[in-house]
Design a protein around this nucleic acid. Sequence first.
DNA 1: GTCTATATGGGGATAGAC
DNA 2: GTCTATCCCCATATAGAC
Lengths: 206, 206
Amino acid sequence: MSIFSKLSFKDKTFKLREQAVLDATTTLLASKGFDLMTMDDVAGEVGISKPSLYKHFKSKEDLATEVMIQLLDDALTYLDGQEPTLTSRERLENLLEWALRKRLEGGLPFLPSGSPHVREILTKSLRYLTRAYKLHKQLGQIVDSAKEAGELRTDLPTDVILFSYYSRTCDPAVDYMQLYGHYSADAIVRHMLTITFEGIAGSARS
Amino acid sequence: MSIFSKLSFKDKTFKLREQAVLDATTTLLASKGFDLMTMDDVAGEVGISKPSLYKHFKSKEDLATEVMIQLLDDALTYLDGQEPTLTSRERLENLLEWALRKRLEGGLPFLPSGSPHVREILTKSLRYLTRAYKLHKQLGQIVDSAKEAGELRTDLPTDVILFSYYSRTCDPAVDYMQLYGHYSADAIVRHMLTITFEGIAGSARS
DNA sequence: GTCTATATGGGGATAGAC
DNA sequence: GTCTATCCCCATATAGAC
């Protein structure tokens, strides 16, 4: 018997609505960005009034933070559920593919780092930072394993590899491929993986 | 005798002030982003009043657009001034290094593409688009030459390589290396070039 | 052309009725 | 808890005096 089933009907609908708000916010953040997204947009998208929105989330910043926290939780869950038989490099490739496909379906990249504003907001949330740190630590271990296995360059510091890896999830190249290049989701994912791991020169030079 | 010297003293100071406005805007755009930058910020930074600002630029969008146009002009000038003895790959490396160093000194990345808002503004400016297209076309030729010379992968479409290349100039990884990794400008440039051309796996795998 | 002072509008947040 | 109606700040943009 789950905790959820203990809730009254009213509480259930409240929770469901809350998730609808989070989903709508995710879509809006992905399309318009934080600064251009208005609380009216969110309320309108969900079909509720603005004051109702504020019963769930005390501010716009709070709402956006919750969305990002949920995203990091999803990423951590994905990492946790990966087959233990995978190599470290495969684990990194799979997670990146997961993030890119999510984004191509209208979702958010973790780290909407492009925006200094959003970054500032997120760094004020301890709950967000805890998860970001946890993810960073786990990925750091995977990168180190990959280095030992000869699957990643050893002449790049681990944190540099990680910063670059995160950045690929919010790479504007994805938008351009989709918007101007009309590439399929599969093609975009394939190209992004090549670019991330092998670079634009890659084997051509060796 | 330059055109400039024909201007009256008043016109000269007007032009000089205009450049000061553009410089201040560049710095502010780089640090705060378009949405958070206010016209009061710009006026205050330059030491003039807001109405004076509007004598130079008819709107905030116009101001930002001019800054971006100037940046593209600088890039085109840099490309034009490159030694003809350089290989195509070297030309790409040098331009990327030029852009990264400019950014590390507080300048703007061409394409502040992170922001959907700015992208929308820029696509409304014919003068901007003309320059962007010119740069895109020139770089496309260089990439094709590099492919023929075996300096770049041939299994990636040229436009994909270009989209990825542009994205490196505004890569958040640069911010993270600077902010959290405390890497020197030289180290950041070196790592970014490696990541761009050789990827994070690169030769480790071959 | 430069300023002080102000108009205008949008959007985050809330009061108060039901 | 939900809504309608409203507050109010802030930032873009301008009016009008000098």
